[in-house]
């Protein structure tokens, strides 16, 4: 039997991809929902898995790559364990979201175009409107929404995650 506590193995993830493809009837028209579901499993879209999806749907790999790179939602690079998304939609932007981004990135040592920390613990992204403008500026850490954040509270939230990681 499978050893308990072992993280979802590569084999399991692949089984999941197979299920996702079957569930969508291997229909090329379902490419986007398929990619969304695959990204749930892998947290990004590995090239060889995209190739497998292309093969299964009988769509050219170049087309699958095109779709995967068109939408900001899809990542073709691995993401960190924790995903920090900062809203930079109009409402959040006017409520000074950018200094928050700068503070978080600085705390995590992210420079240039880098979005993921070298230890693969964090990925920091901006999104255009999370639809929670009343709480602006909004930051989401691993699906937990935080409203009216400031650079200080944002850094504190990130540090809480780091602390938890240190304990485990």
């Amino acid at each position: 039997m499978r050893t308990p506590g072992r993280p979802a193995s590569n084999g399991r993830k692949f089984e999941k991809v197979v299920t996702i493809l079957e569930r969508n009837g291997r229909r090329p028209a379902r490419l986007i929902p398929i990619l969304q579901a695959v990204q749930e499993e892998y947290r990004y879209l590995p090239q060889e898995v995209l190739t497998y999806v292309a093969t299964a749907l009988d769509v050219s790999p170049a087309r699958v790559f095109g779709v995967a790179t068109f939408y900001a939602h899809f990542a073709i690079q691995p993401k960190g364990k924790h995903l920090v998304r900062l809203c930079d939609g109009t409402a959040c932007h006017v409520k000074d979201s950018l200094p928050i981004l700068d503070a978080v990135r600085k705390r995590l040592g992210l420079e240039g175009k880098r979005q993921t920390t070298p230890d693969m613990l964090f990925t920091v992204e901006t999104v255009a409107c999370l639809g929670a403008c009343g709480l602006a500026p909004v930051m989401v850490i691993d699906d937990q929404v935080h409203g009216q954040v400031t650079p200080e509270t944002a850094v504190r939230l990130v540090e809480e995650v780091i602390a938890k990681e240190g304990q485990s």
Binding site: L50, A54, V59, S60, A62, R63, F65, G66, T69, F70
Partner: peptide
């Protein structure tokens, strides 16, 4: 009926590329 090249990325970054941005000779 091949699709060896396609549009990739978006907006300012959009480009016509072989799959995964590989070389043309590597693909189909």
């Amino acid at each position: 009926g091949i699709g060896a090249i396609d549009f990739a990325y978006r907006g300012h970054d959009v480009a016509v590329l072989p799959a995964f941005g590989h070389d043309l000779a590597a693909g189909e």
